[in-house]
Design a binder for these strands. Structure first.
Lengths: 237, 237
DNA sequence: TTTTGAATGTCGTTG
DNA sequence: CAACGACGTTCAAAA
């Protein structure tokens, strides 16, 4: 019995299915009229409405409305779910610790509830990440500039790891901060922290900082200019 | 007819329901054996497996496995969905522009498909955000320090808006950067950009920078120290 | 439409 | 476990 579905079940019947599905680590979906309360890093209440609620075998809880990518409420993986029937309501409480958080979904009416056995160990193959951009540059460092010589990736400094560290034609140290998309001021600041750290470490004030991204905002360009950093437009097409 | 559900439908029957549900702007959930391809800002492929797929009236598409908060694949709101049957597969293609992106979900077998009419206009009441923390400080500015006088929130500078701008006992300008949780180096850099901008604008080198957060990392403390900024521990309990 | 920064961010990697 | 930064980040507000 891989799939179990109930249509407009009594709270008692829904409760039974919830209990067994939590036990068997099945994926649960519910749709119905519910209100939601959350207490943890923040607090929230959501008045009664029709929503899709999902409970995953790993402890994740998701409350989705008819809009947006993000769930309106949720509980992260590692939470434990517990169902109960009281005051004519079906309550599912998801709790976790560190930080202590609690999500309560109170169903007034359950339209449907379904439990599925999930067997899926295939993982996503994704290309186009910053990691791919880095490899692409390492394969052809001349896209940065003629004579650029990559020495290390993830080069550690007191400020954190430098995406690509190398030297230029003149042998001066070069710090490269990579971004896969158009960037704002924070990327320039990040580069600034790394350049400052490596300048101090090497006692070499000739250290150059280069921000590599498909494009940058005006304010970011101003920051780079102020700090005498450079921008190199690179887009992995 | 608010809810429609099919169990192990033929691709043709699933297709019919998809078409009508997209038309009526109903919320769709599907569970079954599918593979997924995405092309857009990045590219990805996901080998066949059992997944929960959701299509929302606003154009959102979500592909969930049995693990994690985040969908393994998705399409943002504003996308348009289109179903077709070909080569013994049921394909649902979600497309959008700016940026151009495409998500294909190919079902080999559909275990269940359900369509729901969602009517939910109640919105989330959330407390504990940075906005709340700011109001809490404005109500009792002495938690920053005796004599602190808030002048403006979201005070504009060439570097962006300052969370709280004010003056201290001595009449010196004070720039406050607020964070609702433990912060890392980026928050210190953010404060640095604002202080630099306001110092230049006012030609007042006595400008103070204060990072307000429940706690900070060691590296962040070092950065604050280097720039002669201060840290004020504030936790809205 | 673009920019900017918050987020109950989540997630992976590393020390 | 904390820390740090990427993310197809998403999202909302403001310019």
């Amino acid at each position: 019995m891989t799939t179990t579905r109930l249509y407009r079940p009594t709270h008692r019947d829904a409760f039974e299915l919830l209990e067994s599905a939590f036990e068997d680590e099945r994926l649960l979906t519910m749709f119905g009229l519910c209100e939601v309360q959350y207490e943890g890093r923040a607090s929230s209440t959501l008045a009664p409405g029709q929503r899709l609620v999902i409970y995953k075998p790993d402890g994740t809880a998701l409350v989705h409305t008819g809009e947006n990518h993000e769930p309106v409420n949720w509980q992260p993986p590692g939470s434990t779910h517990n169902a109960s029937v009281r005051d004519g309501q079906l309550r599912i409480r998801s709790t976790r610790s560190n930080p202590t958080e609690q999500l309560d979904v109170m169903f007034e009416r359950v339209e449907t509830i379904s439990a599925y056995a999930v067997t899926d160990r295939s993982d996503l193959k994704l290309t186009g990440s910053e990691e791919d951009l880095r490899q692409w540059i390492l394969d052809q460092p001349e896209v940065i500039e003629e004579g650029f010589d990559p020495i290390a990736t993830e080069r550690q400094t007191t400020a954190g790891p430098i995406d690509i560290f190398g030297t230029d034609n003149a042998g001066h140290p070069v710090v490269i901060e990579l971004k896969r998309r158009r960037v704002g001021p924070s990327a320039a600041s990040q580069l600034q922290r790394y350049v400052e750290a490596i300048t101090a470490e090497l006692s070499d004030t000739s250290t150059r900082g280069i921000l590599v991204a498909p494009s940058i905002t005006d304010r970011t360009a101003s920051l780079l200019n102020k700090w005498d950093f450079e921008y190199c437009s690179v887009d992995i097409e």
